[in-house]
Amino acid sequence: MADSIVQVRQLVRTYQQGSIEVKALRGVDLDIGTGEFTALMGPSGSGKTTLLNQIGALDTPTSGSVKIDGQELVGLDKVARSSLRLNRIGFVFQAYNLIPVLSAYENAEFVLMMRGVGEAERRDKVMATLAAVGLAGMEHRLPGELSGGQQQRVAVARAIVGEPALVLADEPTANLDSKTGYELLDLMRTLNEERGVTFVFATHDPKVMEAARRVVTLVDGRIAEDLVK
């Protein structure tokens, strides 16, 4: 296995739902190496998305440790977690989640702009990335003027344009038809192989599991199987 970009140790996450305590993660240990193309799978409620949120610094654990590229996330304040997400992690969401008032170009540019990257450099990177995801010529379209597949490509462009250490994708193909889902997976696989981008998916989709080189199966908040193809 390559150097670990993600190190999860004895991760526990419990939620309080009324008077009931829900144990979403029950002591997960996981290492993900640089350049991996890994799928987290499991039935609904198995803890996939919870684990992804922990790795993405979107949520804080009840106990345990999460390190991204050697940096411990537990104990970081809101601003530090924001900064880590901005600079080290890319996200692709199930519902695309583009900013509706910004064009494809501006959505892809958003992360670079928040980082304070200069305009010329932003332009070069955004144009190159949009071309890489097959959206050349569609830069000025608003999300509402793009198909679902195109919107998800913009989301992928937004996730990778800042060359993050890790891209987390939560059910990226769930809202796409089969053909478009395959095309998107091909795109991400290509980006993984050619650019070395690390992808971690939370998914139910057999297409993603088929494309993944490693499949980690979660059941009841624990890793039940870790299969490297």
């Binding site: 993405g56 924001s82 997400r85 901005l86 996200f91 928040m114 937004r158």
Partner: peptide, 10 residues
């Protein structure tokens, strides 16, 4: 929420 997830500060 999306903006915050992408790293936009509060």
């Amino acid at each position: 929420g999306v903006m915050l997830a992408l790293g936009t500060r509060p």
